[in-house]
């Protein structure tokens, strides 16, 4: 089944420890926002993210999702920042009360490319990393199992519940309940379904909770893992390197290097 955004491929990027990819994503985003040079986020996108996505063999899906998520933001940013930029500056064009300034466009470009990096970095992570493996890696690194439960369960149980709701709906349709028609009518038809579904879910939540405990989910001792996520010294060094890089951009900015 498709889980989240994950795209299965045989690639060296897919085989990386999820923490390495997570560190890369976070470091790139920090760097993009820390350095106030207009061209910088675009450079990060082109030099880091694009090659990474190509190596992971998911360029098409990456491009499609990036356009889908960044596209509307891009339009909004250019409209707001480009056209209504409040600061001083040379006017490029004027249309009634609207004035287009070079500074405004530059600022819009920077903001837009920063968003591009932000969304691109996490798409890269999610496209190449199975959420189960990501959670395994994080639990093995000390993430509380409860948090991993919330993430994984949301990805799995919620769709399963939704499927069940559809089953009930289809069952009602099969029994001659008309589910088409106007909104009012549809609400009237759906209302009786909510009860059983919600009640069922509530008592089930109770039983689920016990079932989890019966499998020692609440145990406090050391946990082991059926599938330890492989890690290498090289990757560990790379993660430190990425962290240092991100920190350096923040420090450099604070010291006024880019001013």
């Amino acid at each position: 089944m498709t889980v989240g955004f994950y795209q299965h491929r045989e690639s060296s990027v897919h085989r990386l420890n999820p923490l390495t990819k997570l560190t890369l994503a976070v470091a790139v985003v920090i760097a993009a926002f820390a350095v106030p040079l207009t061209w910088w986020p675009a450079a990060l996108f082109l030099v880091v993210l694009v090659p990474a996505v190509l190596a992971a063999r998911v360029p098409a899906r990456f491009a499609a999702l990036t356009v889908k998520f960044v596209g509307p933001l891009l339009v909004a940013v250019f409209l707001v920042q480009g056209l209504f930029f409040p600061g001083e500056g040379a006017e490029l064009a004027r249309l009634g009360p609207i004035s287009v300034k070079a500074e405004g466009l530059a600022f819009a470009a920077q903001t837009a490319t920063r968003l591009l990096v932000l969304i691109g970095a996490f798409l890269f992570l999610l496209l190449t990393t199975h959420p189960g493996v990501l959670m395994n890696a994080m639990v093995q690194r000390g993430l509380p199992p409860n948090i991993s439960y919330v993430v994984s369960a949301t990805l799995q149980i919620v769709p399963a519940f939704r499927e069940r709701a559809q089953h009930i709906l289809r069952a009602q349709q099969a029994r001659g309940m008309a589910t088409g028609g106007g909104l009012r009518r549809r609400i009237g038809v759906l209302l009786p379904l909510i009860g059983p579904l919600a009640l069922g879910a509530l008592t089930e939540v109770e039983e689920r909770a016990v079932a989890m405990e019966a499998r020692a989910f609440g145990a406090t001792g050391r946990r082991t893992s059926l599938m330890p996520v492989p890690d290498t010294t090289a990757q560990r060094l790379a993660r430190w390197g990425l962290a240092a890089f991100a920190a350096a951009t923040i420090v450099a900015n604070a010291l006024g290097v880019f001013a």
């Binding site: 189960g132 439960y149 994984s152 149980i157």
Partner: peptide, 8 residues
């Protein structure tokens, strides 16, 4: 109800 939801 017995399936954990944590595992894929």
């Amino acid at each position: 109800n017995q399936i954990s939801g944590v595992k894929f």
